[in-house]
């Protein structure tokens, strides 16, 4: 039985892939993007206890083994805990087994067509995902991953057998740019792009556009060089950077204008992308 730390489950999501889906957000990420909207999902709690002192509702306490426990009933959803945490973590995370998560998903049948696991970074929990997706497949649900592509999917072939598609963040193409944005190198992302394209499991490619920080045009070219004519059938999502929730040097950075977004779209059209959405 595999567990994953779950930050949140949205029963009826309309923004995490085709149709109505249940979205599961795992906790912890292997990179830290400057533009992350929910930085409190990046780290696992190390039980320092700071939030316990600050919680105005008495919803946090120390439980067994000096672990911070969250009382969902008492919680007033004020987010004080997240704001005081020294570590970009959250105490409102529960370790759930694949069966437990599936139990929650089953309540949403027959109204959802599938599930999407997002994060944090889902690929940190391949065993959990494999179990969960096997259970979901039994119910006829489609299974999607929303991933930064920093874990080599080719090495996770059992998981890939039960994944219907990956919504892959490209973020940037030049490795220096990627480094500056996330703190890491993007060789694996490029390998995943090529691999997922080969096995036809790209659900969507995403670029968050921050002018001056993201080499978006180069990204589009790089994708075209990698997946070739499949750009025509691949869904491309160009996301407008917004600074809400961002805690980094970008926290006051302006959003690109609608004109800049549509210029980017025009460039993608020139490269033969056909299915493009701007968000």
């Amino acid at each position: 039985m595999s567990f994953a730390p779950i930050n949140k489950i949205i029963d009826f999501s309309t923004v995490d892939g085709p149709g109505c889906r249940t979205s599961i957000f795992v906790q912890a990420c292997n990179i830290h993007c400057l533009y992350c909207h929910n930085p409190e999902t990046q780290k696992l709690c190390f039980n320092c206890g700071k939030c316990v002192d600050f919680c105005p509702a008495g919803a946090l306490s120390f439980g067994e083994g000096h672990k911070v426990v969250w009382d969902e009933e008492k919680c007033e959803r004020c987010d004080t805990c997240i704001n005081v945490c020294p570590s970009k973590a959250s105490p409102k995370v529960k370790a759930l087994s694949a069966e437990e998560v599936m139990g929650r998903i089953e309540k949403n049948l027959p109204f959802v067509r599938g599930i999407t696991v997002s994060g944090g970074e889902c690929s940190l929990y391949p065993d959990f995902l494999e179990e969960l997706f096997m259970l979901a497949k039994k119910q006829g649900l489609t299974t999607l991953l929303d991933s930064n592509g920093m874990v080599d999917f080719e090495s996770l072939s059992d998981l890939m057998n039960v994944v219907d598609g990956v919504m892959l963040d490209i973020k940037s193409w030049d490795s220096d740019v990627y480094q500056r944005l996330t703190g890491f190198d993007n060789v694996i992302v490029k390998k995943n792009l090529s691999y997922l394209s080969r096995i036809d499991k790209i659900e969507e490619l995403r670029i968050v556009y921050v002018p001056g920080y993201v080499d978006a045009e180069r990204c589009l070219e790089g994708i075209k060089e990698t997946i070739g004519e499949k750009v025509e059938s691949t869904r491309l999502k160009l996301i407008t950077f917004r600074h809400n929730g961002v805690r980094s040097p970008l926290s006051n950075h302006p959003s690109p204008s609608p004109e800049e977004m549509s210029a980017l779209k025009d460039y993608a059209l020139k490269l033969d992308f056909k299915n493009i959405v701007i968000r």
Binding site: V15, P18, G19, C20, R21, L109, P110, F111, V112
Partner: peptide, 13 residues
């Protein structure tokens, strides 16, 4: 932005 989602709900209902 995603009418399929509401279609899923209606069919399910």
């Amino acid at each position: 932005q995603n009418p399929d989602a509401l279609l899923d709900v209606a069919k399910g209902a």
